[in-house]
């Protein structure tokens, strides 16, 4: 479950785009897969859409874990 998306720096366009894509408070998200090299990028499912996010991008999203990881 997404808590919030934090700007890594002021007017962070990456954080803005993440919010546009639905990473907003209360949305359930799920880690579907990891990339083959060093587990990067991550494949994140939100709703019925899957996004590939690099770890640095995903780090902007604060999540709370509830039961199903």
């Amino acid at each position: 479950m997404v808590q919030t998306v934090t700007d890594a720096h002021p007017a962070d366009p990456i954080a803005q785009r993440l919010r546009d894509l639905g990473f907003v408070s209360g949305e359930p998200v799920r880690l579907v897969a990891r990339g083959p090299l060093g587990g990067d990028p991550l494949l994140i499912q939100i709703g019925s859409t899957r996004f590939a996010l690099r770890k640095t991008e995903a780090a902007r999203v604060d999540v709370s874990v509830d039961g199903v990881a």
Binding site: R17, L43, T49, R50, F51, L53, R54, E57
Partner: peptide
């Protein structure tokens, strides 16, 4: 600086 991937599958 950092540049994003963020890609829909």
């Amino acid at each position: 600086s950092e540049h994003a991937l963020i890609m829909e599958l």
